[in-house]
Amino acid sequence: MKTFVCIKRVPDTSEAEVKVDATGKDVDSSKFSFDINDADNYAVEEAVLIKEAKGGTVQVICMGPADADVMIRMALAKGGDSAMRIDDPRINARDPLQSAKALAAAIKGQEFDLVLTGCMSNDDGNMSTGVALAEELGIPHAAMVKKVEVEDGKIKAHRELEGGVIEVVEVTLPAVVTIQTGINEPRYAPIRGIRQAQKKELKVLKIEDLNLSEEEVGAAGSLIEMKEFYIPEVVSTAEIIEGEPEEKAEIMATKLVKGGLL
């Protein structure tokens, strides 16, 4: 099996304050910490598991700045063989269809059986890039997959639906599968792997290397326009418990018991 796995570097904003920057069309990311996107981390593990079971190669593709090399090297340390990083500010990476076009351009012309992506990014959350990528490549797909069974020339993909119901679909190869979190237990990179990863190939690509023209990327290449970012008002009718942490704990505990909430 020759597998491509697409990864993205994303900020952890689960507990961070998010502010819109001066352009009004992006956020101030100077104080964020970054990591590999959650679902992509599972996709890397799944690609490596398939390679361990069936043989073959794992090629990592990432669209992002040089800061993403840390995440790429980590994926290589876990079992990736080589990597490509698409680094071109002319690409509008906020448009998932444009991202898909660039990723497809990097893959086209190469031999492969499977492309894995995370099913959703933590930051933009369009859940669109992988499925759009399949269409750009002209191959079938299965989205939001919690289990992959590799068979001869095809796979069985277990799609996780609402309510935890699984829909099993059979898809012929080559195919794109978007991976849902929880499909496996992502490993830690072994020390030896981390050393080896430094020597593995990491190609950096611009749109010219992808045979994309300037008209196909950026604002010209998008059929949608983001007008403005703004922080939504958190409309809360909650009673806010005030005080030091210990006081808040006591007040809340008392309310639960005396207020008949238990």
């Binding site: 998010v18 933590n122 959350g125 403005e228």
Partner: peptide
């Protein structure tokens, strides 16, 4: 965006 922390008009 950002899991509900930012809205965007399109």
């Amino acid at each position: 965006y950002y899991q509900g922390k930012v809205n965007a008009n399109f």
